[in-house]
Every structure is written in C-alpha cells, then in structure tokens.
Design a protein around this nucleic acid. Structure first.
Lengths: 252, 252
DNA sequence: CTTTGTAATTGTCCTGACCAAAATGTGACA
DNA sequence: TGTCACATTTTGGTCAGGACAATTACAAAG
C-alpha cells in the first residue's frame, strides 16, 4: 500500500500518496476526499497527521477545504508556479504581451482616472531621466510599473494578474534578461515617444487608438530586439526569429 | 499582534505572521525559529496548530525542519507563483478571458494542425455526452481542455501559460466555483454550438472569425452566469453585474 | 411543493501524553 | 588536561480523544 520509509515524515508520505491518487485521476477535479476520520483509518495514522497532509495539499493548491462540507480537489497537479521553471522565449513573450497588453490597454482607456494618468506621466519622466542614464534597473522598473498601472487601470484584477505574470516571466527568464542587457549595452534608449503616444490615447479615452499604440510599442520593442540578435545565437535562435517575424507581419 | 479574524483558519494566520517576520528579516536565512512549544505559547494556540503553520511554510519552501534540532529558515520568500491567494471575481475573470482567449484563438487559427482540430472535435463530443449528464466535473474538465488546446495551438507558450493561469484562478476561486455549481444545478447545458463555431473558424484558418467566435462564446457564458445571479447576493453583486454589463455593451 | 427545524456529517482546534532524534551536559579515564 | 562514553535535556513526530462550529441532509409542518 503505502511505503513505510521511517526517515520520511508520515504527513509527507500520506500527502504524496494522496497527490498521486489525485494526479492519476482516482479523485477527479471537484471530487470530495474521504473525511479526515476515514482517511486516518485508511492510512492507519492519527487525525492530526491527516490534517497535516491535507494542509500540505492545500498549500500546493491541489485541494480546497470547506468546514462542515469536506475536502475537494481543485487541481490535478500542484502549482509549481507557472513562471517557475518554464523558460519562455523573449519573442513568444512579446507576442503574447502584444495581444494581451493591447487588450488591457483598450479596456483601460474607458476606465482610467486622472490619478493614474498622472502616475503614467511621472513614470515616463522617470524613464527618460537624464541623470540616471546608466541606472538600467530603475529604468526597467519604471517600464514595468508603467505597464502595470495600465493593466490595473483596466479595472480588471484578472487582467493585472496576467500582466504581472508576464513581466515576472520576463524578469525570471535568463534568455530575456540577457537580451535586454545586450540591448541596453548597444545603446538602446527607452522609447519615450511610444509611451507618450499610449498615454495620449488613454487620456483621450480612445480604446482603439490605445490598443494600437500599445501594440505598435511592443512591435517596435520586438524589432529592436531582433536587430540586437543578428550575429549571435546562430541558427536555432535565427529560425525562431524568422518564424515570429513572419507571424507578426501576417497581422495588422 | 496577530489579528484574530474568525473566518481565517488559525494555522493560516500563524503561518502568514511567521512568513512576514521571515520576509522582513526578523528571522534571517539560517536562523532557527523558536521551538514549537514556545511558539504555541507566543501565539496562544496549541502545538498541533503551530505544526500545521510550520508545515505550510515548509511546503512553501521557506523553512526546513530537522527533528531534534529545530526549524530553520532557508528562504525569505515563498516559492509560490502569482496565482496565489487573490480571489478574483467570476465576472472579471470572464472579461479577461474574453480579451485574452479571443486573441489566443486568433493566433491559433493560423497555426493549428489537424491533430489539434481532432482533439477539439473529441472534446466537444465529450462535453455533450448524453450518458454523463450529471458528471459535471468531467464536463468541466473537457471544457478546460478545449480552451487549453486552443491556447497551445497558438504556438505561444506564454499564451498557454496565461490561459492556464486563468483557468487555474477559476477553479481555485470559491466564488467562481459556487456560481458554476449553481449554473449547473439550474440545468445549464454546455454550449455545444458555440464550441463548434469556434472549431469551424479554426478549421477555416480564419483569425477574425475565430476571435469573434471565442468572444461570443464567453459573452454568452457571462450572460448565463448573470441570469443565475438574479435573486441572490442582493445589491453588492447586482451593482457589479450592471457595471460589467455596461462595459460589455460598450464594445463590439 | 416549499419551508423550517432538527440531526448527522465533517472540518477546527484543543489538551495531554509518549516516542525518537539531536544537542547538551557530565563524569570517568587516558 | 584532554577526550571519549554515557545520561539528561531539548526538540520535533505522532497518537488518542474530545469539545466546538459550520454545513448538509432529511423529515416534518405549512
């Protein structure tokens, strides 16, 4: 049944076993686990141990506990943190951002308030700050905040969570960070005019223009990135670049 | 010291408080936490509760437990991703999905292959399965897979990560799950025709139609959800509903 | 058929105890 | 004096059982 390794703590054994049963579909999504008291008998352990195992699954985001009702499966796999190990390429990332942040920006156009517009103005100023030419992290931070403010201005917390995820992926991705660093070393300045264009469209409460401005901005970022990827990363990267370029060109 | 909200479980409060102390450096990396018995006195809870809190931190990768020795800090921040605790409302979620999955669907239209189209056909069949009328979890699972296959067909791993996040949020959100359950109890059937329309557009490699079909589908889901939210959740929910409805109506 | 109220189910938290492993202290011996 | 062996203390690991609260199920009353 359940291996009785002495070195591993009991709650971990039970938790792992339950996780396995959930993963392989024995308890499907939405299913209710047996009650604590029953599990304690099944696994021949005490109730506190079962509770510990269930809490471990809960922290992993696999089950949801409802007092008086039961323990329910809400996911087959533990949440490893989607941004975690998966190294998503910079070009894919920009393509996704073009689509998603474009829509977020369109939503924001009809929702944004004066305070948020002022925040955007301040962030644009910070990005083009003359005295911090070499302060790349700060400039990047301002860039991220700029896009986050817009996402939050959409008034949709799911949207801002998604945009946050995308920027998190970017900052965690070694590939993306390398490329960004290279671009900065090559003397690429932040695109102030493009950011201004976005803010203008938002200020005019024009969803269509706002979407277009955001998309244009991200397409330009992509082009700049492509230029800095000329010689290095010979074929494999080149192929992906061309593939992405074709797909980008295919749309308006 | 530690807030005594009755609705949140004790172990979670203790765990959050400890996490905070670790994050702000009160217990640095490598430091040993006070022994369980001492923590029990400090927080004025029982030892099992302290143990539960410590296990939660352990699953988050923040501490390491060594029998006979103590509990040691090994990281300042939990390794969990963004999808964490945020409870995002069902209406926000659907609005975001309309925007994002719409774009994903448009991308997929030019990329999808025959195998994926066949998968979609099979999933539609499964959704309308006659013999599993009451098998709600399975039907929902098929629905999720349907949308995930489309996201993956976009050929963009960032996009599929985002869509995965959105569905994860939905399944983890108590609000969303409650509403979905209610809708099913009210006899709402899965919208087969709408799914078929999406697959058709994808098969024709028509990005514009695919985007439109996906958006229409999610708008219909929203409407259905609105209908099931008539009487309950009197004013507060009602206000949000109207607000969302206005915003939806304002776009094409 | 709907509604209301009671009982059973199920998670929540506690008290208290004992066991096992590690750390600490103590004494004997070289 | 220094070092090793052993007993003690500390600390986590687990168990047992019970009181309480939220939820659900079901039956009775309207």
């Amino acid at each position: 049944m359940i291996s009785t390794s002495p070195s591993i703590r009991t709650y971990a054994r039970v938790s792992a076993n339950l996780q396995e049963r959930i993963s392989c579909g024995e308890y499907g999504i939405g299913a209710r686990l047996p009650p604590e008291r029953e599990l304690a008998q099944i696994y021949n352990v005490s109730r506190p141990t079962i509770r510990e195992a269930i809490i471990a699954l809960e922290v992993d985001g696999v089950v949801s506990v409802r007092q008086g009702s039961g323990v329910y499966v809400i996911a087959k796999q533990p949440r490893t943190g989607i941004a975690g190990e998966t190294d998503i390429g910079p070009f894919e990332l920009l393509e996704a951002r073009r689509a998603i942040e474009g829509e977020a920006c369109a939503l924001a156009a009809t929702q944004i308030d004066i305070g948020q517009l002022q925040q955007l103005d301040a962030l644009v100023d910070e990005m083009q700050g003359d005295n911090l030419e070499n302060d790349i992290p700060r400039s990047e931070q301002a860039d991220r905040q700029f896009h986050m403010v817009i996402a939050e201005a959409s008034g949709n917390s799911a949207m801002s969570a998604v945009v946050d995820l995308l920027w998190d992926i970017r900052f965690r991705s070694p590939q993306s960070r390398m490329l960004t660093t290279k671009a900065h070393l090559a003397g690429i300045k932040p695109r102030v005019e493009e950011h201004v264009a976005i803010v203008d469209a938002l200020r005019r409460s024009d969803p269509v223009q706002a979407r277009a401005a955001m998309r244009l901005h991200l397409e330009r970022v992509l082009e700049t990135l492509l230029e800095t990827t000329e010689i290095q990363e010979v074929n494999q990267a080149r192929d992906r670049v061309h593939q992405q370029r074709r797909r980008f060109a295919g749309r308006g």
